[in-house]
Design a protein around this nucleic acid. Structure first.
Lengths: 224, 224, 224, 224
DNA sequence: TATGAATGAGCTTTCATTCAT
DNA sequence: CATGAATGAAAGCTCATTCAT
């Protein structure tokens, strides 16, 4: 029984001209997309293999044929999710910008990406609920380390040299902070909306949030 | 018909020496605690009623006797969780402090509370995965609105009047930001640790994080 | 542990002046009525002890105190049901009527009683589903034998002697037939209504049925 | 997604020699038969899915795979039960007989069918206990309307034209009466036997009942 | 490559019944 | 006489997974 482990090669790479059946590839992609949606909607525990098959319009057995088990499927989805955001980050070109613009741009990007990809947040929550035991199994996890950290380090260093940023900022800490400012707001928007009795997802509210976040990040980074 | 006795008596009050057999309350509290742990560990979907009964050392049937269903039990746990943190906040006495100390104190408190109560984070994630449909059913949700928002508003105003804080800061936004800086780091620590290949939960790392967070919040609030 | 077996004394008999607590009696009667309704509505299998307690507005434990078990309670209800209809039959005074009027009156009575006491039918169905195993346990079952059989026999004999009824009619068979003509129509009215697409319980339909039944019975009994 | 293959193909058609493995149909038939027996024996409420699976010698899960729920299974059984009796009625050929013989034949058929198919009675009782809510969901219910009503109407009309039957007989009423005379006797035979202290199911008793029923029906239909 | 049929283990929930006072 | 608390057994149903083709 063959287990052709699939997925998420960087799409730019020209497909090697071997005819590994277009159908096979398409099926796997269908499954992956369907699974992503299902996991995002219900979490790992609440996701149903049946529903994934239905969403993908494919036989359930096929999921096992390609992905072995629910857990492995989840891992595959997770890896693809990371690959996707890394891919998006690659188009940011922060190095072309001034330090201030760079930070602003990164903050905006993070915010917008989370909004456009709500599954990202739910998926990450699921992964962490299960203590990242999935990631530990992944060999591709190392590659997931964002190249942004490097870039962000460069920006901070440039800014410091220009005398506008404070020194001693850990790019990892700052990266986590930017993400955290966006993530918490979006991830917990239901709870927060219920508690504060105001709709946090209106266009106005979202704009205010982004503005606030930028202020916080720049307020911190900029020297007095 | 049972009486799902709820909770959050001020824990200071010394229990009047019950003449025994008032086990109803104790049973409900046992269930609530056991459920909190189970939900925190496995999420709503992954939690098992059997395990909750086992943890509480009580008959499974009793859970239904007092709490009707898994969902209702989850809601009860959620309400108690909120009641607990509100109770803790009540002891903060931020108004006694200078604006700067107030902000610092609030940041520390948030950070420490999340660390001491890891279930808080997981529970909130679960609640949000289910789109807060539990909270919507709750009539007590309004009371959950943190009185801290008011206090935080006062602090910001005081600081502004003293000429040390910038103006126009929305206390809700700031509250969410403080929480977000802590929450994301802790909630996603497994994923982040795996990706960055460094242990984010070591004592040193945790201290660094708190220090960073405080810098960010004050860096933002303080006028240049 | 005392088990004061209750119920269904012929209500005319003056209560012996022993103070077996009015409350006790009232409780038992409440339970009996509540149980009758519940069993009639849901059958023996579908009936719920909880609901009976709720209907009777009494503690569930009390039901067991007085009636030992669900099965025994069902038997008690059954006995009371029979006692009730026997009691009603006692007021018929068929012997005062002409044979033809007697038959007509009995048919009408049967029909009207079933209509006024829909629980009678459901209860009997339940009893028979369980193969009357309840009745076999009952010592009072002998007393349940309708005295009407005797009366009906007299009527038939009188009619025969007057030369208007055919001879050789078995009163038990006729009794069962009268009951059957009414019972089946009412017991299966839902199914029949659905199948024939007409409402069998409208006033008009009910009158037509009674008229038809009387015609059948008299058409059979009367000599050509 | 399974295909709850229903039933009642005209059984005459010789099964095309299936190339094996078309076990789906056989499984569903097994379930249906087992369910019919279980429901007949214990009613809807008392029936156990476990026992049905055991009877059918199939995995319990499969029942849900094909029939979704206990209620739906019950409906399927009910529909099959009706289809079966309708099928049997189709072989009666009452139109070939004289009016008197036609009525006699119908009475005999009804009686014998109920005796040979005791599940029919219990199933109907269950359906009616639940107020035919199952039938209301069924789209096939219209087709269940007995074609016999038409035939019976023809017989009555023929008899009336021949001057031997009385006029104005509603075939639906008569159909219900014939069924009722048989149904009540058989459905309540346990209760009745207990009360009258005589075995109503002995061969002799059964013959007497049929004879009585025929007399009643003909006595009613025949003109004086 | 693809699929419909089948399953064992286990889930939430229900129920009649008993305990303890 | 009356009751709230508690329970073991089992019910209907679900789920990830495998079989057989």
């Amino acid at each position: 029984m063959p287990r052709p482990k699939p997925q998420a090669e960087p799409p730019e790479l020209p497909e090697p001209a071997e005819p590994r059946s277009r159908d096979a590839d398409r099926s796997q992609q269908s499954i992956l997309l369907a699974a992503r949606d299902e996991f995002a909607l219900h979490g790992l525990g609440g996701a149903r293999m049946d529903r994934i098959a239905e969403r993908a319009d494919l036989n359930k057995r096929l999921i096992y044929y390609y992905f072995t088990s629910k857990d492995d499927l989840f891992l595959a989805v997770l890896e693809k999710t990371y690959a996707d955001i890394r891919e998006a980050e690659r188009h940011l070109h922060l190095t072309d910008l001034s330090p201030v613009e760079g930070l602003r741009r990164l903050t905006e990007f993070t915010w917008n990406y989370y909004i456009k990809h709500p599954e990202f947040i739910t998926l990450l929550n699921s992964a962490n609920l299960h203590q990242a035991r999935h990631l530990e199994k992944s060999e591709r996890v190392r590659e997931m380390n964002s190249p942004l950290i490097q870039t962000l380090g460069d920006i901070l260093e440039r800014g410091r040299k220009e005398g506008i940023f404070r020194g001693g900022i850990d790019p990892v800490q700052l990266y986590i902070s930017i993400a955290g400012l966006a993530y918490f707001y979006l991830s917990n928007n239901h709870t927060l909306s219920a508690i504060f009795g105001r709709d946090l997802m209106s266009l106005k509210a979202r704009n205010e949030r982004l503005s606030h976040m930028t202020d916080v990040i720049l307020g911190y980074a900029l020297k007095d």
